[in-house]
């Protein structure tokens, strides 16, 4: 089993996987006026963790636990991602993550553009990490990405935003533990918590001519 330093590498925002180009739905909600300060960012991140955070963590853990399930898990994420803009964003991030991961470890063959959580799980398996560990990395990634995007989009105080992330860290751990506990379930039974405004926002965002983030 790999150690904590390996897990930190996988969860590091400086991993060259293109994550900085995505706001995970935040830019659309900032533009709609729903996220405008640290408190509303907190509400956004809690909703993210409970929905796409839980789903990403469960699918990453499932892929890590058994990489032969990757194709079925990829289909399962398609069925959980009704927004074509979000499917495209997830596959673009999966592809970029896979490229970085292949330089680091011997990653199983996943096809060219797997969904991001599937790619993350397969990387973790190649790195010798456990499903429980990669679930933490996945849940952590679903809030740190949009939090850093919020600092750029709204000019929020980075100290206040990191204080918010520190308060959410135990929630992140709980979501990851739930996700990992369910990761052996059949694909149809894995978490499928959705967020209507993220889907709608992503579709509207994709039509903008000028935007800072790809999604």
């Amino acid at each position: 089993m790999a150690g904590l330093a390996t897990l930190l590498l996988l969860a590091d925002g400086r991993l060259p996987s293109g994550g900085h180009a995505h706001s995970a739905g935040l830019e659309a909600q900032v533009s709609a006026g729903r996220v405008h300060d640290v408190a509303s960012l907190g509400g956004f991140l809690q909703g993210k963790l409970a929905t796409s955070g839980l789903v990403s963590a469960a699918f990453a853990a499932a892929a890590c636990g058994d990489v032969t399930r990757c194709a079925a898990l990829d289909d399962g994420l398609d069925a959980r991602t009704p927004s074509p803009a979000l499917r495209k964003a997830s596959r673009a991030q999966g592809r970029a993550l896979l490229r970085a991961g292949r330089a680091m470890w011997a990653v199983a063959d996943l096809g060219r553009e797997p969904h991001q959580p599937v790619a993350l799980g397969a990387l973790a398996a190649a790195a010798g990490l456990t499903p429980g560990q990669v679930a933490v990395a996945a849940a952590h990634g679903t809030i740190t990405g949009p939090a850093s995007a919020a600092v750029r989009l709204l000019g929020l105080d980075p100290y206040a935003v990191h204080a918010l992330l520190a308060r959410l860290a135990p929630v992140c751990d709980r979501v990851a533990a739930t996700a990992a506990a369910r990761s052996g379930d059949p694909v149809d039974d894995l978490p499928s918590a959705g967020a209507p405004l993220l889907d709608i926002g992503a579709e509207h965002h994709a039509t903008w001519e000028v935007r800072l983030f790809a999604s």
């Binding site: 956004f44 909703g47 409970a50 918590a193």
Partner: peptide
């Protein structure tokens, strides 16, 4: 084959449901 798989949770027990990611206001 699963075409659409979705769960929506609202109410006091659902974390973040009335926040800007799920239903907002």
């Amino acid at each position: 084959k699963a075409l659409y798989r979705h769960e929506l949770a609202v109410g006091p027990r659902a974390s973040g449901w009335d926040g800007p990611a799920v239903l907002g206001e």
